[in-house]
């Protein structure tokens, strides 16, 4: 028997080309056993390509990936029973009920005894067990997708954008479920373009942009090392306050609403700005000071927003 690897997933110099397009560009990283690893990046960054190479759906152009010490291109048959996968945008058979769907997928892993009802309970679908898939809401569909990924009690779980397209409440339900899995010690590899999701769930975040991993570490460490400042958000009554901030030498940036954001080094600067605005006779409706988040880390590293707003120009 080969010795059990230390890492659940090892990726080395992985590259994938689609014709001219370099979708994944020479990336390397390791995922420890029992951790939640999030691949964070905007649409088209190469998240799906990366995760689908690792979970044996696609093949790499070059480089190497292994799960539990097994090369993904050579030992698919041994890997498959030990992993669980929720592909991006997965939806199941429309007219098959929750219970039947879980039963079907567990039959595909035929030698295992799956506790179907236990799984239904785990993903909190007991009331909907006899409901056909097409009648479920988006959040319930995703939770069923996760249940399906768990039918073989996998050691490593791959979830490609598990909460995309869900409303905030449904998303939170999914997060709760994933947190539960994390506490059970499952290794989870997840991709997302929601920085809150990565921040909330992940032990390690790898930020991917244009096929390259541009930063990696725990959410705290990433913020610490890349965004060592405070974010002051102001809601001014009129342009006057903005003018004052600008003359002080700061760079106010308009948020999507009427808010403006100012990047400051210390708490002292916040005090100074507020005093100057007050002395200048300008009024504020609200204000907020907080530490930066992964969104800002991404912005700083790439100069692009993680989620492009419609006015944000053409994608790519």
């Amino acid at each position: 028997m080969a010795k059990e690897a230390e890492y659940a997933i090892e990726v080395e110099k992985l590259t994938k080309r689609y014709g001219e397009l370099l979708a994944v560009d020479d990336i390397s990283f390791n995922v420890r056993k029992g951790e939640v690893f999030a691949l964070l990046g905007p649409n088209g960054a190469g998240k799906t390509t990366t995760v689908e190479i690792i979970d044996t759906i696609r093949t790499p152009t070059s480089g190497k990936a292994s799960i539990l010490g097994m090369d993904v291109t050579k030992r698919k048959h041994e890997i498959v029973p030990r992993i669980g996968v929720l592909p991006q945008g997965f939806s199941s058979f429309d007219r098959i009920t929750v219970r039947e769907t879980i039963q079907y997928f567990s039959r595909l892993f035929c030698c295992r005894k799956t506790d179907v009802d236990g799984l239904i309970e785990l993903v909190n679908l007991t009331d909907k067990a006899q409901e056909q898939y097409k009648n479920l809401s988006g959040g319930l569909m995703q939770r069923l997708g996760i249940a399906i990924a768990l039918v073989n009690d996998p050691e490593v779980l791959f979830l490609d954008e598990p909460s995309t397209g869900l409303d905030p409440r449904a998303r939170r339900e999914v997060w709760k479920l994933l947190l539960g899995l994390k506490n059970k010690g499952k290794t989870v590899f997840l991709t997302t373009h929601y920085m809150e999701e990565a921040e909330f769930l992940a032990d390690t975040v790898a930020i991917i942009s244009k096929g390259k991993i541009i930063a990696m570490g725990s959410p705290d460490a990433l913020i610490e090392s890349n965004a060592n400042y405070l974010v002051l958000t102001l809601k001014p009554v009129d342009e006057k306050a903005i003018e004052i901030v600008r003359t002080m030498g700061f760079e106010p940036v308009h948020d999507n609403h009427e808010d403006i954001k100012v990047r400051v080094e210390h708490m002292d600067d916040v005090q100074k700005i507020l005093n100057t605005i007050k002395d200048g006779g300008a009024l504020l409706l609200s204000l907020d000071v907080r530490k930066p988040n992964l969104e800002e880390v991404f912005l700083k590293l790439t100069g692009e927003a993680l989620r492009k707003n419609p006015a944000g120009g053409v994608a790519e």
Binding site: H77, F90, L108
Partner: peptide, 13 residues
């Protein structure tokens, strides 16, 4: 289109 085929390719079928 539903991704079922991709899902199936990660099961023993």
């Amino acid at each position: 289109q539903k991704g079922v085929i991709r899902k199936l390719s990660t099961t023993p079928i």
